[in-house]
C-alpha cells in the first residue's frame, strides 16, 4: 500500500512535459489536487518550454474571448437576404397554423 503510494507520488513528480502540459491545460478548467500543483511548480522551475506553453495558452484564451466579444458587438457576418426570407416565411407559416 505504502509502496504503491510512494510510486504514484514519484511518477507524478517525475512526469514528462506531455503530462505537465496536460496539468497546465486542466488547470484552466478545474482546480488541481495539491500534489499535482506541487509537481507542476517544481517542473516549471527548470522547464522553459512548459513555462512558455503556460503563458501562451493564457494569451490564447484571452485573445479568443476578446475576439468573440468584438464579434458579438459587430454587425457582420449577417444573415443572407435569402435565408432571412426563408426564415420569415417559416415564421409566417407557423403563425398561420396557430391561427
Amino acid at each position: 500500500m505504502m509502496i504503491r503510494r510512494i510510486a504514484t507520488i514519484w511518477k507524478i513528480l517525475n512526469a514528462p512535459c506531455r503530462e505537465m502540459t496536460l496539468l497546465l491545460s486542466r488547470e484552466q478548467d478545474d482546480p488541481l489536487p495539491a500534489l499535482e500543483v506541487f509537481a507542476l511548480r517544481l517542473h516549471l522551475l527548470y522547464c522553459s518550454a512548459c513555462r512558455r506553453y503556460k503563458r501562451n495558452i493564457g494569451v490564447m484564451r484571452r485573445a479568443v474571448r476578446r475576439a468573440a466579444d468584438a464579434l458579438d458587438a459587430s454587425s457582420t457576418p449577417a444573415l443572407s437576404p435569402e435565408s432571412r426570407r426563408r426564415i420569415k416565411q417559416a415564421m409566417d407559416d407557423s403563425s398561420d397554423l396557430q391561427g
Partner: peptide, 30 residues
C-alpha cells in the same frame, strides 16, 4: 513525453488581440 516541437515566446503586447478591426482577422485565423 518530451517536447518534439519548439514552443516560442510570443510578443508581450498580445498584438492584434485588442479588439477593433484586427479581431476579425484574428477570428479568421482562429
Amino acid at each position: 513525453g518530451l517536447w518534439a516541437v519548439a514552443v516560442e515566446r510570443w510578443p508581450e503586447s498580445e498584438a492584434g488581440t485588442s479588439g477593433g478591426a484586427e479581431s476579425g482577422e484574428f477570428w479568421a485565423a482562429f
